[in-house]
Design a protein around this nucleic acid. Sequence first.
DNA 1: CGGGATCCGTTATGATACTG
DNA 2: CAGTATCATAACGGATCCCG
Lengths: 127, 127
Amino acid sequence: MSTQLPIDSQTNEMLEVRPGKWTLVVISELRDGSRRFNELRRALGGISQKSLTTTLRDLERDGYISRSAFATIPPRVDYALTALGEELLELADGWRRFALRNRAHVVAARIRFDGLGTSVSIHVEEE
Amino acid sequence: MSTQLPIDSQTNEMLEVRPGKWTLVVISELRDGSRRFNELRRALGGISQKSLTTTLRDLERDGYISRSAFATIPPRVDYALTALGEELLELADGWRRFALRNRAHVVAARIRFDGLGTSVSIHVEEE
DNA sequence: CGGGATCCGTTATGATACTG
DNA sequence: CAGTATCATAACGGATCCCG
């Protein structure tokens, strides 16, 4: 096998490689230990409870987080990373470091690109 | 190490941390060098040309790939990774390795989860 | 408090037809 | 060949109301 293993659609689908808008944010928020539903909700800022619910359920379904419900009054539910979730957290961190490191670079590239649009044709090269 | 740097929505938005369906697949496909539009299209399988176009343009806009157009007949356009794009490729590879390593695990977790109609206090399915 | 159900606007993606 | 334009649809995300 010649290390020819590009990300294929299969892998993409199977493991939710393309996370929803909040997936990695939730994973990151659980880095320091378990959190309750509304704790997460507050910590995350703009998330709707529906999105949080579905994000959490999807993550639980795939085994990235565990859900512990206590039948107390008021009810209480704790969410925490599983071992697999911690691996995912590491990936998220790598992604975050990349983002922080290259933020300026990308923003600049974007501005440069957007600035070119107004002036006629795209630059062309001859061979 | 307080590591209080969770992925925030800002970072999320700014750097397209949440890639589109085809972003990482395209990046992966460029690992061995430049490719032409229809080469990519064929290699990727199910992608529509519109999706490929927008994916490529977005990646170019953010500085991950370069676009070289030749005014020949027939016209020809080459896409290739930039230095930044190669960094992104490494992230994609990390993701892919994770996916391959844990595929079975996640699929199993998913099946287990879906099988649990009858657990703790979450049994409201039937009517 | 945690979260299910529903309605609904925004975005993402695809199929198709056409052009320089 | 490498797109662009248009239309249609599916997935996503938010707001609201409801319940154990």
